[in-house]
Structures are given as C-alpha cells and as structure tokens.
C-alpha cells in the first residue's frame, strides 16, 4: 500500500489533519486521531479491535465512514501531483535585487552574517554611479516582468544614503521610460534615522525593516557599538518615530533570538507592548558560537512557538492584535506553484549587488566568492551557477521531496543551507525543524480563526 501522504498535529486544543498533496486541512477529534494512529491503513475493517477499549464500535465505524467520504472527494489520502520537469530556459528574468549600499556598519553586532558589515572584505560604500547602473541592470534584465523590487541593504545603508536616493531617482525615471513599477525596502539598525531621512522614506513609500532584538537586556547582549556599549535606548525612540510617522504601516521590527534568549515569546510580548504591530523574530544561524542554537534546544523552542500561538489568539480575540511574520499564511489565496517549488528565487529572479557592482545569488551568499555570478556592467558570466539554482526545487533538496511541509516552506533558505552545510541542497536541520513548527502554528491559527469565526486583517507586507 502507498504511504499515506498526510500530516497530523496538535496545537493548543486543536487537532489538525493535513492532506499533503491536495492541501486539504481538517480539524479532527480524538477518534479520528486514534484511528490514524493505529494502522497504516486507517480504513481497514478490523480497526475497531484496536480501539474497542476506548470507543464504541459504532463511533469508530462512523469515523471511518467520514474518512472514506473525504477520500472519495479527493480531500484525503490523495496521490502526488505529476509536476512538469524544470527545463533549462534561454532567458530567466530578474525581478528583484538587493543593493549592498554599504559594506560597512556603525555597529558590531556579534551574530552578524555580514561579518559586522564588511562581508570579510575591505569596508566600502557603493558609488552613486553603481547604484544607478544596478537599476539599469534590473530594468534591462527583467524581460516582461513589470513589478520589480529593490532592497537597500548593507552593512548599514544609512551610512551611504545618497546612493539610496540615487537609485530611487533612476528607478523613477525608468518607471516612466519602460512602464515598470518599483517597490523599495530598506533594512536599517536605525542609529542614523533622522527626521529628514524618515520624511524621505515615507514620501517614497519605502518599506522599512528595523532591527531590534527585544528588551535592553536581550538587545544589548548582541547589538552593540564598536566600543561594546548597547543600542536599545538610542534606537528605540528613533524606531518609534519612524513607524508612527507612517501611521504604523509598511514596516517590520526584525529581531534575532539566540541561545541566550530562547524564551522569545516573552520578547514578542515586549515588542507588542511597546506598540509594535508588525514583528518578526528569527533564530540565529550559526553553529559554533556560545550563542548558537543547538538541536537540543528545539523542543523548548517548539513550546515557545505554541505559547506564542496562545498569546496571538488571545490578543486577536481581544482586539489588541499584532502581526507575527512567521504566522502569516494565506490558506484560501496563497502563492502559485512556481513560487512554492522554488521559494525566494535566489540566483534566478533575485540577486545581490555588491558596492563594486558584482552579482551574487543572494545577500547572504555574498560571503562566498565561489558564488560570484558576474557584474552589472558585463552581465552574468557564470550561467552554470544560475542553472543550478534554477533546477534546485524542493524535489532536488535533501529530505524535502517526502516532507509534509514541502509546499509551504519551499525547501528553506539557500543561504542558511550553504552556511550550515556547504550545499544549497541540504537544508539547515535546526532551521528546518523550527520552520515546520511555525507552519503548524500558522495552519492552526487559520483553522481556529475559521472555526471561531474571528475577523483577521490578513497578512502584511
């Protein structure tokens, strides 16, 4: 008998059953849970023999009949899809670039994957000319794609704000010349935010990603200045000014939790109570430091995500809702197949541009010179690298083809995989376990929202 491609899990008081191939999601009761537990064929006639001490025979048969009805409707035990093979194509459009506006930083955060801003190289800024030429590069290489994205990143991009302005100026010209639509995002540690910069960011509708790890005793452990002093009390008022000046829209507070701050649900509460409504906390990606998260921490962290579900639902019902990035999920109108198979599009439709104009598959892989694709002036030279990314779908990754979460996580982050395993096809094991837990939580939240008829304002950004 073919292995049943289903996944059942409990969050709070809710038991859920996901039919992996169809995506059908069901809330189930104890009888169904136990029927599915006691045999590889839950529809076989003698199941009641295993469960007769716990349930009436009629209830067990009734449960099995419901399972059969769902199977016949194509909502349970469905066979795998036959997906088209990913073929090599002549032209792959680029639709998003991450501009490394500065390979320098005014902070020395201990966990920084950019090696405190310089990516292990000589500290440098992107020139105005490179910033403009990068915009020309994406416009010339985007084919028929109309919606294009520019991320301003670093290091710290506010150290070189003229280059940000230069890129935006060029993008606005191209919007008129070539009927393109640019969207902008800027990631900052907030130290250099001024009224003038905040006004500019708001006027140009730039989404903001603001780095803050939580209360001072957590934030200032890792996010420090060159002299080792903390940053919380300096950046908090600037962050608040920035988000309240834009009517609390179009931003995320982006924090990192580490081995030293595993109880991150308390951190989320702290941030929510500070008035932040869009919050993201990510586990640090690192393997050999005193702050690295270990495999043995996973059970504790899974309980933290469940605690966060409880807090999230309480506040949702009480009207004091906040938005947690990893609980965002659209189960009625989600992304289409091509995105689910490949995720972020690193190396194909998404690339990073260094201050010199070099092209890399993503902002995290700038750390590794083996991934140098080419540059914005001469185009892509390493088509072999690009083809590898193009063909690395969830079906090419280790453990992903049979994983229940494959159509939700899209195989995880290439950068994290390479950072931890030196292979973009081998997902980071700890990150993978936590991502699966977050998906379970997000599905449970959506199920509870529908079951209890709660108004949900939808995912943001």
């Amino acid at each position: 008998m073919r292995k049943l491609d289903i996944h059942k899990f409990k969050i709070k008081d809710v038991k859920l059953l996901l039919d992996v191939n169809s995506g059908a999601l069901h809330i189930i009761d104890d009888i169904i849970w136990d029927i599915l537990d006691c045999s590889s064929n839950p529809l076989e006639e003698n199941i009641f023999l295993y469960l007769k001490d716990r349930y009436e025979k009629s209830a067990i048969i009734e449960g099995q009949e419901e399972l059969i009805k769902l199977k016949n409707k194509g909502l349970l035990f469905t066979p795998p899809h036959k997906f088209p093979t990913i073929h090599e194509v002549e032209f792959l459009p680029v639709k998003a670039i991450c501009l490394h506006i500065s390979h320098d930083c005014n902070l020395r955060c201990r966990y920084c994957f950019a090696k405190t801003g310089g990516f292990g190289r000589k500290r440098s800024h992107m020139s105005l000319e490179v910033a403009k030429s990068a915009i020309d590069f994406i416009a010339d290489n985007s084919g028929s794609r109309r919606n294009l994205e520019i991320d301003f990143f670093g290091g710290e991009p506010l150290l070189n704000f003229d280059a940000v302005k230069s890129a935006i100026e060029r993008a606005k010209e191209i919007e008129h010349e070539k009927d393109k639509n640019f969207r902008f995002t800027l990631t900052t540690n907030a130290v250099l935010l001024t009224d003038e910069i905040i006004d500019y960011l708001n006027e140009h509708n730039i989404s903001l990603i603001l780095s803050l790890d939580g209360p001072p005793e957590i934030n200032d452990l890792m996010r420090v200045k060159p002299d080792g002093s903390g940053t919380y009390y300096e950046v908090l008022p600037k962050i608040k000014k920035a988000i309240f000046s834009r009517e609390e829209k179009n931003y995320y507070i982006r924090g990192t939790y580490t081995k030293k701050s595993l109880n991150f649900s308390d951190t989320v509460i702290h941030l929510a109570d500070e008035g932040f409504k869009n919050i993201s906390l990510e586990p640090v990606v690192s393997s050999d430091k005193d702050y690295s998260i270990k495999k043995s921490d996973i059970p504790f962290l899974e309980r933290e995500y469940e605690k966060l579900v409880e807090i999230y639902m309480e506040r949702l019902k009480g009207g004091k809702t906040f938005n947690f990035f990893h609980f965002n999920m659209e189960i009625f109108r989600g992304p289409c197949l091509s995105r689910r198979l490949k995720g972020c599009g690193a190396g194909t439709e998404y690339m990073a541009v260094t201050p010199k104009g070099e092209l890399y598959p993503c902002h995290q892989l700038v750390n590794y010179e083996d991934f140098l694709l080419g540059d914005i002036y001469n185009g892509i030279k390493r088509h072999d690298i690009r083809k590898t990314f193009h063909k690395t779908t969830i079906f090419e990754k280790e453990n992903c083809p049979d994983c229940w979460a494959r159509f939700f996580c899209s195989g995880g982050c290439y950068g994290n995989a390479y950072s931890m395993n030196k292979d973009i096809r081998i997902p980071d094991e700890t990150g993978c376990a936590l991502q699966k837990k977050r998906i379970e939580c997000a599905l449970a939240i959506q199920a509870m929202i529908k079951r209890d008829n709660i108004k949900w304002r939808g995912a943001f950004l």
């Binding site: 659209e330 439709e349 899209s410 199920a447």
Partner: peptide
Amino acid sequence: KKHIDTITISAYGKMLGCGECKTSC
C-alpha cells in the same frame, strides 16, 4: 456525530505562474 471539520479544501490556495508577485525571503 461529526468527527471531521474541513477548514479548507486546499491550504495552498489556487496553487495550480506569471511571476508578478513579490519575492519571498
């Protein structure tokens, strides 16, 4: 008598390609 409550017939939405959506990360 109801043991199963179907929340959605597909949590993948209309999964089954124009590329105009926002990049994920």
